[in-house]
């Protein structure tokens, strides 16, 4: 519950900054709020504003968003076993809410072995993030240039993620996956469209699988 609250508070600065940035890029307020309402994808929303601001064509904007959002296919695949027993009327809205924060919270809870009513947890988490995101965007639109961007507030979210990550690092393959993904994300930070993040995730998963196999080989070798 504490972690949920800090993630909710953690997304507020991003929503505020998004609203304010979009307004300063002279996007009409109704389109800004509409974007948050209809897309609900934090980092992709920032990318779109940046591209629109630099005069990119609509086609470039949409294609870039598509590439950035490819990592959501990972999220979707990870959610598949958790949501397998659910009817489409559950799956469709859950997929709608599947942005970074909603995913990591649900997946981290699931990884800790708490599989009970995962869909209700995901729905509650996703909806509260959705509402927070809308209110934050709205406040950002209204406040505009008054929104402070000092790099302190937006650090709350990574810190909360850290609190989610640490308890999962209790096995060697998971640690190997995290270390590989983290280091590669730093090294590939310069790649466009957050491709570095996507590659880092792929490499992390591969490292986890390799470490797992090495573990098994070693166990099998023991008398």
């Amino acid at each position: 519950m504490k972690i949920q609250l800090s993630i909710l508070l953690g997304v507020v600065p991003f929503a505020l900054i998004f609203g304010a940035l979009a307004i300063s890029a002279s996007i009409p307020p109704i389109a800004v709020q509409g974007y948050s309402l209809l897309v609900f994808a934090d980092s992709a929303q920032f990318l779109a504003i940046g591209l629109i601001n630099s005069g990119a064509t609509s086609v470039v904007v949409v294609l870039s968003i598509f590439i950035v959002n490819l990592r959501h296919a990972f999220y979707s695949a990870t959610m598949a076993p958790m949501s397998r027993h659910l009817p489409l009327r559950w799956k469709a809205p859950l997929a709608w809410l599947l942005m970074d924060e909603a995913f990591v919270m649900t997946a981290a809870r699931y990884a800790r072995g708490n599989t009970q009513a995962a869909h209700w947890f995901m729905l509650g988490t996703g909806l509260s993030l959705y509402v927070t995101w809308q209110l934050g965007t709205f406040a950002g639109i209204i406040a505009g240039s008054l929104v402070p961007y000092n790099g302190v507030l937006d650090f709350a979210l990574p810190l909360t993620f850290l609190a989610l990550l640490v308890p999962t690092l209790n096995k060697w393959p998971v640690a190997a996956a995290s270390l590989t993904a983290g280091v590669l994300a730093v090294l590939l930070n310069e790649l466009p469209f957050q491709l570095g993040l996507l590659l880092a995730m792929l490499a992390g998963v591969t490292a986890g699988l390799l470490a797992e196999r090495k573990n098994r080989v070693m166990e099998a070798a023991l008398p």
Binding site: V104, L169, V174, A181, V186, N189, V205, A207
Partner: peptide
């Protein structure tokens, strides 16, 4: 899903978290 994919999914959450956090900390 192929078995290897299903096992790989197990590592997605931690890998995602680390890939988001570490650049924030180190850069």
């Amino acid at each position: 899903m192929p078995d290897i994919v299903r096992r790989g999914l197990h590592y997605v959450p931690s890998a995602v978290l680390a890939a988001i956090i570490l650049p924030e900390l180190l850069l």
